[in-house]
Design a protein around this nucleic acid. Structure first.
Lengths: 142, 142
DNA sequence: TCCCATATCTTAGTTTCCTAAGTAATTCTA
DNA sequence: TAGAATTACTTAGGAAACTAAGATATGGGA
């Protein structure tokens, strides 16, 4: 099969599909989806108020996608959404006790995934890799 | 907002989302989706028989996803699926006359996208970028 | 040769994305 | 300061991915 000339778009999409499937296979998948797991991971690392728009930015997803994600996480008892006094448009995302109990597992899972992914790749090459992705995102000006 | 330590998984997912949205915005989107467009682009480049499994491999999608994609393309009059004499499990994907009329547009769109994406990135860095992605896909052993 | 494993594609049902449109609050500006 | 623009989130409906479970067809031993 003659594959097309190497295409960055195709490579990224292909790797992204593989990653999504791997994320969904993580051990903690019993209680929540891969997407919810990585969001939990992000929330656990925050020290300031987090809002839906921060999740949107972190993963480049649309507001409607974030609304659905957070709705499911709330339904699963992982978060609460509460208004803040200084801006009534915002809903602060608060982790529940239940969510905190997954901390160790989630951190371990995500760390393992990253470790697996980058195994055998030099720091120099990884630096360039991240730089190229940043430049590409910039080029798409989204 | 404190973003997590740079994460290859997150970077790839984020860029992939941006790319998907860009692909869906291409001019030819009037007649078919971005996903159908890139598949058409792939098919146009082939000189030998192409089967569903080749599409699955090219984009790392599951059989059920490919079935749905090709069903829609057939419905849109872009392809036909016909059996081959030497193996009754296979269905050869054949481009229609209608599909061939999109050749120039599709090639131009996909070339532009790739050009936009890689603008301002050196050949050396791109080589490393592709190498890193290949290594990552290998690490996921999918 | 017969059966078991493998390969290819399909169907059913779900999740995760999307666009488009809408609500409500805030901020900007004429 | 009233109206317009922007920001944050939601809803509705659709597209693109998934898993799981099939239906057939092929190929490889015992």
């Amino acid at each position: 099969m003659t594959s097309l000339t190497r295409s960055a778009a195709r490579y990224v999409s292909k790797l992204s599909n593989k990653l999504r499937r791997r994320l969904d296979m993580l051990s903690s998948r019993k209680e929540f989806s891969g997407s919810q797991g990585r969001t939990l991971h992000f929330l656990l690392a925050q020290t300031q108020d987090v809002f839906q728009k921060d999740i949107e930015e972190e993963y480049s997803i649309r507001p409607s996608t974030a609304t659905e994600l957070l709705k499911q996480m709330e339904k699963n008892g992982l978060i609460l959404r509460e208004t803040v006094p200084y801006d009534n448009r915002l809903k602060r995302i608060v982790l529940t006790e239940k969510a905190l109990q997954y901390r160790q597992q989630v951190v371990e899972d995500l760390t393992d995934l990253e470790e697996t992914l980058t195994r055998g790749i030099s720091e120099e090459d990884l630096d360039i890799f991240f730089g190229v992705i940043e430049k590409m995102m910039d080029n798409l000006a989204d």
